[in-house]
């Protein structure tokens, strides 16, 4: 008896463990997610009630008196509860579902809103912002949206099928090679949430996450200006050495740091990498130790990713590089 009690106590813990709020579809902070949330509860409660009713009928059919059983097996009951009731419920659900689909997935956003292009690559997210003034700037692994405005995400990919899923914001939408899919999202509350690639795209698929940051509408323009600015110049000696190493070791071949000679497009843009909430597509914390670990050992963190391991630096050089990158706020 004691072991079953312990086992059953463990179960709720397992369930709760999967419920961290930042990636939970049950804590919507976006318009699309809110509609999915209401649909979810309608169907869950409705389904639950119908399930309870069916269970009840089953119990009556097995243990009930002959009167109840006679009523249950009447022809009217079969047609009424077996044909008309489901037909009515399903029709109602169809109507509600169509209404939601029309609203959430395909609403077009006003022309003033920023266009964000997200390209899934193996295994990170290339994010490009284009604002009303026509300015275009590139970032990686983080999507910043203004609260209350509808933003169109143009989803593409350059290699295999990925899927963009920010559970707190909206539903999933695939990124298919050769095709651009549009997803409209509207954040309703400011805050940080987490998203995930939702279509198997290779070995490191599980390590391909991203962060969504919703800014209050008046702060968004300010953030965009900050992001469009070139990289912060290094000020300490360590950071200067780090920048020198960064440029001399050929990091600019793949990574761009606007404002320096580094203009590579093969890998993530690092212009403001220091201010991101995470590294490596939300697999590592954003701190100096993680930078060092990634530079030296990224093939063990994310096997077969596009960056070769750089074991060519001394400890002091790695320190300098990490300080420089961390300082690119």
């Amino acid at each position: 008896m004691r072991t079953t009690a312990r086992r059953s106590a463990a179960l709720p813990l397992l369930v709760i463990g999967g419920c961290s709020v930042e990636q939970s579809a049950l804590h919507p902070t976006g318009a699309g997610a809110e509609q999915i949330y209401s649909l979810f509860w309608v169907m869950t409660i409705g389904g639950g009630l119908i399930f309870a009713a069916v269970l009840l009928c089953t119990l009556w059919a097995i243990y009930g008196g002959s009167g109840i059983r006679r009523t249950l097996s009447a022809e009217g009951m079969i047609y009424g509860a077996g044909v008309f009731f489901p037909a009515a419920v399903l029709s109602a659900l169809l109507g509600y579902g169509l209404y939601l689909m029309q609203e959430s997935a395909f609403a077009s956003s006003p022309t003033g809103a920023p266009q964000i292009a997200v390209s899934g690559e193996m295994w990170w997210w290339r994010v490009q912002y284009r604002d009303a003034q026509g300015r275009s700037l590139e970032s990686a692994n983080e999507v910043h949206v203004p609260v209350g405005e509808t933003v169109n995400l143009a989803l593409t990919t350059k290699d295999v099928i990925h899927s963009f899923w920010a559970p707190q914001l909206a539903g999933k939408l695939d990124m298919i090679p050769g095709r651009t899919n549009m997803l409209s999202v509207t954040a309703t509350k400011p805050g940080i949430s987490r998203g995930q690639c939702a279509e198997y795209c290779g070995g490191a698929h599980a390590l391909m996450s991203f962060v969504v940051v919703a800014h209050p509408a008046d702060e968004y323009a300010q953030w965009l200006d900050g992001e469009a600015a070139p990289a912060k110049a290094p000020d300490t000696e360590r950071e200067k050495l780090g920048q020198d190493l960064f440029l001399r070791s050929g990091c600019g071949a793949c990574h761009a740091v606007r404002g320096t000679a580094a203009a590579g497009t093969i890998g993530p843009d690092l212009t403001h990498v220091g201010s991101r909430k995470s590294l490596g597509a939300a697999t590592l914390n954003n701190d100096e130790a993680s930078f060092k670990r990634w530079i030296v050992d990224n093939q063990h963190i994310k096997p077969e990713n596009g960056m070769p391991p750089y074991r060519i630096f001394t400890e002091a050089e790695l320190d300098a590089l990490a300080a420089y990158l961390d300082g690119l706020a």
């Binding site: 044909v83 037909a87 399903l90 029709s91 169809l94 169509l98 689909m101 029309q102 997935a105 395909f106 999933k172 939408l173 695939d174 298919i176 095709r179 899919n181």
Partner: peptide
């Protein structure tokens, strides 16, 4: 009768939703 309902369900969606949109 049930099949008629099914045909109606399948047919009515095209009237409501954009025809070639990627829904998923």
């Amino acid at each position: 009768a049930l099949a008629s309902l099914g045909i109606l369900f399948a047919g009515v969606t095209t009237a409501v939703l954009p025809v070639c949109a990627q829904g998923r």
